[in-house]
Design a protein around this nucleic acid. Structure first.
Lengths: 217, 217
DNA sequence: CGAAGATATCGACGCTGTGTCGATAGCAGT
DNA sequence: ACTGCTATCGACACAGCGTCGATATCTTCG
């Protein structure tokens, strides 16, 4: 029964100093490359770093926060490659720039596929991640794309109805398809072919005449 | 320390006889109407039925199976309403039947939204559910729709390239949007407006000329 | 009608994973 | 050398899962 009041001989060894937070995030990426998010535990994660489980809680409140941190780590990169289309000037051919942006995003998924799939999973399993994704990132994208659509409507380049909802639907399509074909699947599809299919759907929805013309040729 | 070898006075009361399995599934539906799948526990679920937690395991191996059972319960209904388009005969206008099928499915999501969202969540959290959804139901749909697309290509009604991948992308779009707008959101969007947006995208991807003509008017 | 078997239900156990807490080792500044 | 500061640790309490053996009730059949 007697719990030793204080284990008098507890030999604690301090780890070499280093940026532990970053180390944990890296370990998380490594872990997610091997197994899906649902199979990752704090214990599992920390064993990779050589630190103990409790140390984890010094840096993160829970696995949610790790997922959110990873999310932000990739998010910037995504926006960057897509802005060429989002900010397309008057001189740019809007029909051609859609496939280019989609291809660029597909490339990123092809490289970070597992992590991005994991983030997606995490957003289902933890409310905090879900909010960060939906209300943070996703809504930003929708706004940006809807805005660009409205500009193009003004200019008579397209006649999409309901830019907001169209943008949302197309974006959700992209992430679902990317996660499925470039994140969870082994081996993943070639990103160009995935991008090609998605591009046709975007073009069909936004510039139907262009898609009709393209297919007629 | 001594665990009483057998609690001599354990008064066990048998529940009134009834179809327990169905009762559990109903309780699950009820629970999911209130909170997302991730917050449902066996304990929580069984307390609603008046039975104890261990009884659950007499009927199901885990919560996965409950999710799969619920999935099958709704799946039939979905296929039914969509077959009019999938089996569209020569006489039917293919362009008009797409929106009709989508509207019908949207109605189902509007009614069973919470449960369908829960199934979606479960498929992320449990491998078994994921397989049942992806390899079972989703692939069936893709095959059915791709087949119909191929028939229409033969007949020269459409020129879609890569029917399989197009079908997959459009389907994933629909489920994502339905889950988001009719399942998780409170209050949900009006199903007709969600269906309208999705329909335009489908038509744009499959019959771009029709969408162009529609918008020109 | 009463014994024998089947089965639905139960309480208790052991396990895994989470998050918290108080203790402390080693560093940084004085 | 003294005094914090903080990163790290081991131990704990708790929640949820899945299993097991016991048993109350129902069914069947002699």
């Amino acid at each position: 029964m007697a719990t030793q009041p204080t284990p008098a001989k507890a030999r604690r060894i301090r780890r070499l100093p280093s940026d532990a937070e970053r180390e944990i995030l890296d370990a998380a990426e490594a872990a997610l490359a091997e197994r899906p998010f649902r199979d990752m535990s704090v214990d599992d994660l920390m064993r990779r770093t050589g630190m103990t489980r409790s140390t984890f809680y010094h840096y993160f409140r829970s696995l949610d926060e790790v997922a959110i941190a990873l999310m932000r780590r990739v998010q910037g990169e995504m926006m960057d490659v897509a802005t060429p289309w989002i900010n397309a000037g008057h001189d740019e051919d809007p029909v051609a720039s859609v496939p280019r942006a989609i291809r660029a995003v597909a490339e990123i998924y092809a490289r970070h596929g597992r992590v991005l799939a994991a983030i997606n999973d995490a957003s289902v399993q933890h409310e905090a991640v879900e909010r960060a994704w939906r209300d943070g990132i996703l809504e930003d994208w929708i706004r940006a794309i809807a805005a660009q659509l409205r500009v193009q409507i003004e200019r008579g380049v397209t006649r999409v109805e309901n830019p907001e909802e169209t943008a949302r639907a197309l974006l959700l399509m992209n992430t679902s398809v990317f996660v499925e074909r470039l994140g969870k699947q082994d081996p993943p599809d070639p990103p160009e072919s995935v991008a090609e299919t998605l591009s046709q759907i975007w073009v069909g929805a936004i510039y139907p005449e262009a898609l009709a013309a393209h297919r007629a040729s």
